[in-house]
Design a protein around this nucleic acid. Structure first.
Lengths: 342, 342
DNA sequence: TAGACTAGGCGAATCGATTCGCTACGCGAA
DNA sequence: TTCGCGTAGCGAATCGATTCGCCTAGTCTA
């Protein structure tokens, strides 16, 4: 590989002059600049990023930690983040936390060892708060996605509570009183906020909470379709059901199929977050559409802002999503579905 | 941040001794080693990867270039590759080529500037062969995924021709003679191989090729459902159809819906590659299942092998996929679906 | 007991860039 | 003529690790 020394020799100037030409850090006469530039072209010189980083302390890389790269939702986030930081001249270093707090801490440390200039993290359920201290100690700015945790940190996510309240309200307006929620792991802040939205909607409407209709799980990412089957097989089965995530929606759909219930004839169904290719699935799901692309975009923007001004006030950005009115809620479009507040 | 110098001072030894303790590059007495190790722990020292890389010439990073991170198939690949290299102590640097040759070349250069130890590339359709020269010049091993291009390079992919031949053969065995292929951009080697499989199957069966049933496009990633609609609206419409990719399958499904054809009653349909959540889509698609996870895994393994032995013979690994016999082909399970040769 | 050899550790060069301070030169003013 | 000053460019220290060669004791052998 050719180095800056080779270029300097070719152009018959000193190493520092070549550096100044490349970075525009000092005035160089036109004539010298030309010589250097042609030398760079001819030798196809590209500066060694490691050497550059060692000296300057900046690597022009951004770390992104997600819990499962293969999940569709994260694919969208990765795509948007990559695009955002690439156009800003940065490069993406990706790590998978595998929905495990120990591994998350490890990969965060690895990214810090690689001296990323900043980090975007979608924390796991029982994330160790120490990771933020690690980043702070390394003076590495962090943006948290989706799952909100800690104060004094830039965050971007959706308004889970309001969105779920809208969905629940819709079923209530359609006359349902026994509404089940497949809530998932309420240890995850996202899912707990959604469960809160459900409870608040019931409360506002003066409806009682039937604890047997609230399906939560302590841990794990399963789709829980066995539990849902059990619930649906009982004599006092609910007249409506809400799934709190895309994965849980798939579990519910499996359960409906297995116990041979037809939606919306036998039970009304709405979901938080759509599922892929839902346009080909019958019935059309009434659901909240998670604005994943926007979240990725905003996260990249937020980090860029932070890198430009380390002392800016930390902010929390709530990206609005959209509600899709399908046929699965069984209201036949007669009951309006009100938008989530922005 | 604490550096190796701090540790050396704390342990009352020289810098080089600390280095030797960390890397096990020289024998150090137990007593000294202990002192150094406790000093490392107490100071929470982690070596500066940039400095380390500058000296050693290895960055412990692997570059991965895909054309669209948000596509499900690449999400799977990314996940497997990340896992593979993480367990090997490497870190993943991800770049998006956006299905554009110019951008692809740029990101490859960026990754080389960051001195990745190796690279895995899923090339774009009209990929510039120069990218391989760039890598060769930088002495950076490359593994090519899926789309095969060039010789003397490690490659991992599936046997597109054989898989497509099986699918086509299945429809022929079921009695079809007018079989359409939605082939997509045959400039992409993957898709051309699939088209070849279709043509070879027809040839083996002694059936003529109807060019109007072969829908190809010069460029782009669209799902082409308009073209498919046109084809289906003609009086002499085919009795069976094959879609050559997951995306094209979605286009076909849209077209069937829009022109109100029922599969398999009005037309038989099989697809190369399934679509997400297809278990909830009626009818069940008879299709070839792309072994994406295996491809990602193998790519990581292949690169590891190459890094261990730069002089090994370049190999091409063909990962076998599976065939799923659904109801969309309309044969009612009466006609056997023969496996792809491994 | 001298000489050879080993173990354990130290010092300094090195990787390839950035960046600060210095020099040499030319020009205008006093 | 001398002084001051701005401009263009050079030299060398520096970032934080790795690694090679050298040094010093201590041990073994003849």
């Amino acid at each position: 590989m050719t180095t800056i020394v080779d270029v300097a020799r070719m152009a018959n100037v000193s190493v520092s002059t070549v550096s100044h030409v490349m970075n525009g850090t000092k005035k160089v006469s036109d004539e010298t600049r030309m010589r250097v530039e042609t030398a760079i072209k001819e030798s196809q010189f590209t500066p060694h990023q490691m050497a550059r980083s060692l000296r300057s302390g900046r690597t022009k890389t951004i770390g992104l930690v997600v819990s499962d790269t293969s999940q569709f939702i994260f694919g969208q986030v990765i795509s948007q983040v990559e695009q955002g930081i690439r156009t800003a001249g940065q490069t993406l270093v990706l790590a998978n936390s595998g929905e495990d707090a120990t591994q998350e801490k490890q990969v965060v440390q690895t990214l810090l060892d690689h001296r990323v200039d900043g980090m975007i993290i979608a924390p796991v359920a029982d994330s160790d708060p120490a990771i933020f201290e690690l980043c702070a100690a390394a003076d590495c700015p962090v943006v948290v996605i989706d799952r909100i945790s800690g104060r004094g940190i830039d965050r971007v996510g959706i308004d889970n509570e309001a969105a779920m309240r809208s969905l629940t309200r819709h079923l209530i307006d359609a006359g349902h009183k026994r509404i089940a929620l497949i809530a998932g792991d309420v240890g995850v802040s996202t899912l707990r906020e959604r469960a809160d939205g459900y409870l608040n909607a019931l409360d506002e409407a003066g409806l009682p909470v039937h604890t047997e209709l609230l399906v939560t799980t302590d841990r794990g990412l399963g789709d829980h379709h066995r539990e849902i089957e059990t619930l649906l097989s009982q004599p006092s089965r609910p007249t409506a059901m809400i799934a709190a995530s895309g994965l849980l929606t798939l579990g519910a759909l499996r359960a409906f199929r297995d116990v041979e219930l037809t939606v919306p004839r036998d039970i009304a169904f709405v979901s938080f977050d759509g599922v892929m290719n839902s346009e080909f699935i019958e019935p059309q799901l009434t659901c909240y559409l998670h604005p994943v692309e926007a979240i990725g975009r905003e996260a990249a923007k937020l980090l860029a802002r932070r890198l430009a001004d380390r002392n800016a006030m930390p902010v929390t950005i709530r990206v609005p999503g959209a509600l899709f009115h399908g046929t699965s809620c069984g209201c036949g479009g007669l009951v309006p579905l009100t938008m989530v507040a922005p």
